[in-house]
Design a protein around this nucleic acid. Structure first.
Lengths: 370, 370
DNA sequence: GAAATCTATGCGTACGTTTGCGCAAATAGT
DNA sequence: ACTATTTGCGCAAACGTACGCATAGATTTC
């Protein structure tokens, strides 16, 4: 415990200093701070602060003066400081498995667009499909004091422990696309089942009867649901679900080639394929051309994701659009809602986007255009 | 000026308060701060701070205690506060014209990857190809106290005023891909001329003699340079540069269709096309197929950018790879170098990446494979 | 046995903002 | 002319962290 004399001495010293230096014009490298403005104008920092944020309690004359000098000195408000004081960083964290391909790119675009419109800056990170990275990134985002986290899970993520901290700190958490089922969290997803259903139903309507399916890893919900839609459509139409017509793979282009080879080797070939990914459709298409089979005359094709190239192939590929950009937008909106809510009643919402079947050449049976 | 009595009174009050409240365990919502740890452990904040950053001056016993409690309370360091104190935000700002398409996506991926490896968080924004947005974004990034800014210019950007502030604050500024010529700034670009040159030279080597060019807006350096490379290659081979073989457009797929129509209408058709964009190559390809002309037998095609779909078309398209990801990586590395430099000697560096011609089917004259 | 050197810790302050409270001066109400 | 009320501004306390400086005790040095 300091003695009374020490306290006094200290205070006198401080007064003295500030009197001697008087105008310690910021040496701290070419950055004007709010107190620099205050000093040069002979007003207090509070006045400057309030003037800059255009509060009513400051006279117009003073405001003008402050604004003028601020412009002259190229004053730049310090978000870190403001954030620290206000407890609001204006930062939104986003984590995706990776930033390539069409899907996540467009989601990020959607996120950035509406986030910045709402005055938020977005911080991006990639989990590289790896839980360890995911954990570390969450830590980083939390440290950065983001006001919300938007995340699409890595493939390998099974458990949820690393998100506990986020909830405990009552930071809005929104998942998109890749979600863990049965978890009580906010999320925006597309109705994958419906997508698979529509795609398959469309093929049936076009008169195709022996429809194959290329599916992805079934532990991923998106693929499971797309397959379910496929099955539902078949059953609804009274068509049999034959296991030999279903090919599971990792949905690459090469997988598509292999899948089609397998299909063509069957005694009874399919007359159409619904694939859970556009990439494997392209593979399939290439294999078909190699066999001089025509699409959609001999075999029809429908993909999923509406990748850029689907309208560039020949024939152009029918595909299910995932509304990527809208997904990003919805995710941000969900975050904003959660934030505005009385943080006590914290009911996770879930937004389900409807997929959009884009019918192109690869699935329209000639002479039967709908 | 406060009276001496006031000062003393204030100080006594303060002492009193802190004594009465003694343990004001943080009410501030479920976030443990460094001082919470300190209080619970009965040590000073400085000790905790030092323990957390594993300084040598703290005993192992104390460190252990601190770490243990930190874990228990889910302590989360506050980057804002640390940044404010240290004058280092660990934030890197990135501005791109937009985040769709292949190119910028991959650049961003590259940036994020090496930035996060260097301990930086990246803040993304889009200028939407608009100077006004660009200006506003720069302000935002500066306010966020980013330690560096990586930017690819909007198309319409002609002047440089809004970047002055950045330089004045001595914040490392690195341009990539879209740069203003003759400006003394750090930048990483690819050698577009070389790309155009190699592409054209390759066509010549394959035996094509009447080579057309689809070019983009010439006020954009990238397109100007690619065209220059095209011309250089022709001249080098002693071939004439004919204006009727050059088609200027915005490089969309539809432009490609139109361009090819124009070429096919010529009395003397070209036998190859080098396009500054893959998209217009696809358009050209479609138009050719419509006319039942074969690629590359009748007309060869070479594009630029190595878009995803170039290896999915039929025939697969030869294209110039821009090393997008590497460009992002280089940009970050350049930033890191600039930062480490004695900020006095501040010599702008420029990195020129070599493009990579990827020879695929669309340009290999049959029976003449190299 | 006193002086020098470590070792481990505490104190105070600064980083740049925002904001509740207080207080004068100017204006309004009676 | 004498209280109320407004208007305009200042004071100082936060926000959470980092770090220079001081210091008490333990250990070594001569």
């Amino acid at each position: 415990m300091r003695t009374f004399a020490q306290i006094v001495a200290h205070y006198l010293r401080k007064q003295l200093c500030s009197h001697v230096l008087l105008t310690p014009t910021n040496l701290s490298r070419n950055k004007a701070s709010i107190s620099d403005l205050a000093r040069q104008l002979g007003v207090s920092v509070s006045t400057v602060s309030r003037a800059l944020s255009d509060k009513a309690s400051i006279s117009d004359a003073t405001k003008k003066k402050v604004w003028k000098l601020a412009k002259e000195l190229h004053y730049q408000p310090n978000h870190l400081a403001a954030g620290l004081r206000k407890g609001r960083s204006n930062l939104l964290g986003v984590m995706v498995p990776h930033i390539d391909g069409h899907f996540f790119t467009m989601v990020v675009k959607g996120i950035e667009t509406v986030a910045s419109k709402a005055g938020f800056n977005v911080m991006i990170c990639q989990s590289n499909e790896d839980v360890a990275h995911e954990r570390k990134n969450i830590e980083t985002l939390l440290s950065a004091q983001v006001e919300g986290i938007l995340v699409s899970l890595a493939r390998t993520t099974r458990d949820f422990k690393h998100f506990e901290k986020v909830r405990k700190q009552e930071i809005p958490l929104v998942f998109f696309d890749r979600v863990l089922d049965g978890l009580d969290v906010s999320a925006v997803v597309i109705d994958d089942r419906e997508g698979g259903y529509q795609a398959t139903k469309h093929l049936i309507q076009q008169g195709y009867r022996r429809i194959a399916h290329f599916g992805g890893p079934q532990y991923l919900n998106i693929y499971k649901h797309r397959r379910q839609g496929y099955i539902d459509a078949l059953l609804e139409a009274g068509l049999p679900v034959e296991e030999e017509l279903v090919f599971y793979c990792d949905m690459t282009q090469e997988d598509g080639v292999r899948g089609m080879q397998q299909m063509l080797a069957l005694r009874q070939r399919p007359d159409a394929v619904f694939s859970s990914s556009d990439f494997s459709v392209v593979g399939a298409l290439q294999e078909l051309k190699r066999h001089h089979l025509r699409v959609p005359t001999d075999i029809a094709l429908v993909g999923f994701s509406n990748e850029t190239f689907t309208s560039l192939t020949e024939p152009m590929l029918t595909s299910v659009d995932q509304r990527c950009e809208q997904m990003g937008q919805s995710a941000v909106r969900l975050f904003l809602e959660m934030r505005d809510e009385t943080s006590s009643a914290f009911s996770p919402r879930r937004v389900v986007l409807q997929p959009d079947l884009l019918i192109r050449e690869s699935s329209q049976r000639p002479g039967r255009r709908q």
